[in-house]
């Protein structure tokens, strides 16, 4: 543990100002990840800025027909929001696939984007970890890596991003609205999280002092053909081995547009335009889905304990796209796989 300064921010500008350029300042909203990490001495903030009073709790339709989600909207409220359930059911489903009811009640939308990896070495300060302490080495590459990445890894880090919600947002082409010392900007979801490269300590492309204010969903929600399929080591309250958010736009049996993003296999929600291109104009069947899976996984690489994930991911892609095509999305309460 470490002593830190606790301050409350009154509005977004105040929150940004209070970071004061300090890279060890942290915003706290639900606290469902940050507080754990502080107890484990992984996060050692100098200043914790409480942003729970900021006016970022609205879910509002946008003029273009999309949806703007305030950064402080709790996961539970978002999952059960009528407009989300109606227009973006894959997002509701992804949120309900994650964590537990108690955690979802506390966790915020913005905080969910900033969840840190569950790699056991990252969490244990007694072991080397480049993400926690750059330059100390990656314990997972030669260690217990059953839950680790098969795509986009580096010599420095093979950790995975743990969020379910982000996988659906990635599939939906969401954008992240950010305010910082130099003003506002909008970051495409695909550019928000980073691959580890040689700087695994950086999970995202947020700059120091920047705060997430909202996530915006474009109009297209794939409400009729979608699914969120999460495979894990027990039937609830476990992080994904492989998860997939899928959406199809069908003309009869022909795919006009197909999208799918995967969780649990990379340092960021993983989406591949080349794999989605395989779907376009093709019949919605297992052969098509398998070809798309093979493209997405073409560079997949397994480590000692996680090679099975390559095969599992391929099977999940085929199954999930099939669920979406049949309009039988995976239920998150009934655990039989649709």
């Amino acid at each position: 543990m470490i002593n830190f300064q606790y301050v409350q921010a009154t509005d977004v500008a105040d929150a940004v100002r209070q970071t004061d350029g300090d890279p060890r300042a942290r915003f706290v909203a639900g606290g469902t990840n940050l507080i754990d990490l502080m107890k484990m001495e992984v996060e050692q903030p100098t200043r914790v800025i409480d942003i729970t009073r900021l006016p970022l709790r609205q879910v509002e339709p946008t003029p273009s027909g999309g949806l703007r989600i305030g950064a402080l909207v709790p996961n539970t409220d978002l999952a059960y929001h009528p407009l989300v359930e109606e227009r973006y059911p894959v997002l509701s489903s992804a949120i309900m696939a994650g964590a537990s009811q108690q955690l979802r009640n506390m966790a915020s939308t913005g905080g969910n984007l900033l969840q840190r990896t569950r790699c056991a070495y990252f969490y244990d300060v007694a072991t080397p970890c480049n993400k926690r302490t750059p330059g100390t080495g990656c314990s997972a590459i030669e260690g217990l890596n059953r839950g680790h990445a098969i795509l986009g890894t580096s010599q420095a880090c093979i950790a995975v991003h743990p969020s379910d919600m982000c996988v659906a947002m990635m599939m939906l082409d969401a954008t992240v609205h950010v305010t910082g010392p130099t003003g506002d900007r909008v970051v495409p979801f695909a550019d928000f999280h980073r691959l580890p490269g040689d700087a695994p300590q950086r999970d995202t492309n947020l700059n120091p002092g920047e705060i997430i204010t909202a996530v915006e969903l474009p109009p297209k929600g794939f409400a009729s053909h979608h699914t969120y399929l999460k495979i894990r080591d027990r039937l609830s309250y476990a992080f994904a081995l492989v998860a997939i958010a899928a959406g199809l736009d069908l003309d009869g049996d022909t795919i006009k547009e197909g999208r799918f993003a995967l969780g649990g296999i990379a340092h960021k929600p993983w989406r591949d335009p080349k794999a989605e291109a395989v779907l376009r104009g093709q019949p919605a069947n297992a052969a098509t889905f398998t070809r798309a899976a093979d493209v997405l996984l073409r560079d997949a690489r397994g480590y000692k304990y996680n090679t099975f994930k390559i095969d599992l991911a391929r099977r999940c892609i085929v199954r999930a796209l099939g669920q979406a095509a049949r309009a039988t999305p995976q239920s998150q309460s009934h655990k039989k796989i649709a």
Binding site: R118, A120, Y121, D124, A126, T127, S139, E142, G143, L144, D233, R234, L235, S236, Y237, A238, K335
Partner: peptide, 22 residues
Amino acid sequence: DHRFGRVMNANIAEYHVPVNAD
């Protein structure tokens, strides 16, 4: 992790026991 001789899932989030869904 036998390199460190250390339990790496020393918590009940990562050491799995059944939850209600199981």
